[in-house]
Amino acid sequence: MKTLLKYGILAILLSCHLQVSAQSPIFGKGIYMRFGIGSASFYHADKSEPLVAPLYALPRLNVSTSFEIQASLGKRVALLFQFGSVRVRSKVRDIWTTAVHEAFPNTYITTDFPLLFPDQEYSRYPLRGMLGGAYLMEYQRWSVQLRALVGGFSSFPNTAYAVIKQPDSNALSTLSISLQADNYDADQGVAAFVGSLGLLTHRTIWRRWGVYGKVEWTAFRSPFTFDYVLENQVDGSRTTRSYGDTYPRMIHELEAHVGISFQLARFKK
């Protein structure tokens, strides 16, 4: 079945390829496919919580990839389907351990991440899928698009534990910070609705091939709350904090991509 599907798709692509002649107009009604790579940066309110922010696994400066299909319905309007993933480059273990060392200087720190396997340094990659539309402005080989998309975003939060041991003493505290979400699933992570606005510039370079660059701003409401428990093991005293629904938990993502574009098919007038 998979083989049939694979060769079926190849056959469709080939027929589309043959239908689009070299003399076709550069733009027009048709289907375009794009693949791009760039950077994705996340900005969220919890940056003021240095022990919590790394656990969102949405750090600054990540490499992201995107794949999209554009169906141009006319000279001005297009429908978009976009799928992307963010490759989290930050080493969650290292960043969080450093943050705990800074929060509790001159102590022995042992950290543990129960949701990450011992040899994993990174969190699993966030994924994003969106549908939307674009307003097209085309001139000769150039196309500029204003686009708006909505969809879903999934990410994998972390829970972290730390043992904080005073030197030359039996004094010991334990710290646990767990991110929680109602719809958390161990395999699929946590999902959230997202909205995105973007600007794309496309230039045709040869026949159906082109290059593009785009910037996108995406915002979504964090589905997470967290519980912070610092417990002094000697006297049993506890410091607890948690974020509820009243906290402004918007997460913003800024993405910049460059990539290649290919016209798969052209609709007949």
Partner: peptide
């Protein structure tokens, strides 16, 4: 004195 319970993710006195 405290007994160190190591049975969980975190040691507990």
């Amino acid at each position: 004195f405290r007994y160190v319970d190591q049975s969980g993710y975190l040691p507990r006195y």
